[in-house]
Each structure stands twice: as C-alpha cells, then as structure tokens.
C-alpha cells in the first residue's frame, strides 16, 4: 500500500487549497479594483475563476457610476494581477464544516 501511494501524484499536497473552493472571496487587483465572487477554480499561478462576481471601483476613482458594486458574472482573474485575497469568514466556516462532514461520510 505504501509503495502504491508513493507512486501516485501528490494529491494530498494541494488538498488544503480545496478548503477555499466555493468560498466567497474579495480579490483586490493591481489596478485597485475589488472583485467579490465565489471561488470556482484555481491553479498554481493563483489564476482564479470566480462566479457571480461583482466589481467595485478603486478607492477615490471618479466614475459616473459612483461607489456601487457592479455585477460582472463569471470572471477569470490572472494571478499576476492579484494584490490581495480576502475570504468571507462565514463562508470559510461553512466550507470547513462541509468538508469535515464529507470526510466523515455524513450527508449534508
């Protein structure tokens, strides 16, 4: 068994990143905008796919739109443009509980 598992790709290595999946995130980009959406997918370069995302303009930017969030739908944010990632605490907790439940075989 031990030999078999060592020949498999190191699945467990990125297992932890799964705890962020379906978590509501606020991603700040290098142009100062913030995108709020649910994380759907990511890769090694931190390229993110957010669904049901909305956009907020940079602080102090004068726009005819004002300060409101704007719905943009599904977006892909290249990792190189990401400055900061914030996650909703409630959403993180819910995801954690879901993952624990699944690992115990519970039906949620």
């Amino acid at each position: 068994m031990a030999d078999e598992s060592s020949s498999l790709p190191p699945v467990a290595a990125y297992e932890n990143v799964k705890e962020f999946m379906s978590v509501l995130m606020m991603v700040s980009t290098t142009d100062g905008r913030q995108f709020c959406g649910t994380l759907m997918a990511t890769d090694r370069d931190r390229n993110l796919i957010l669904s049901e995302a909305s956009e907020q303009l940079p602080v102090g930017f004068q726009s005819r739109r004002g300060d409101r969030f704007r719905y943009v739908g599904m977006i892909a944010i290249p990792g190189k443009h990401i400055l900061r990632i914030d996650a909703s605490k409630d959403s993180l907790k819910a995801r954690e509980m879901l993952l624990k439940g699944v690992s115990r075989g519970a039906i949620i």
Binding site: P10, A13, V17, A87
Partner: peptide, 17 residues
C-alpha cells in the same frame, strides 16, 4: 466579516502541480 488569506492561499496554491 472578511479575513486576509493572501499568504495562506499563495502558499497552498504553490503546492498545486
């Protein structure tokens, strides 16, 4: 209601093949 996870996320993402 949000928490900064930039470093944690970057570290975990780096483990992806």
């Amino acid at each position: 209601s949000y928490v900064d996870i930039t470093d944690r996320f970057t570290a975990e993402a780096a483990k992806i093949m």
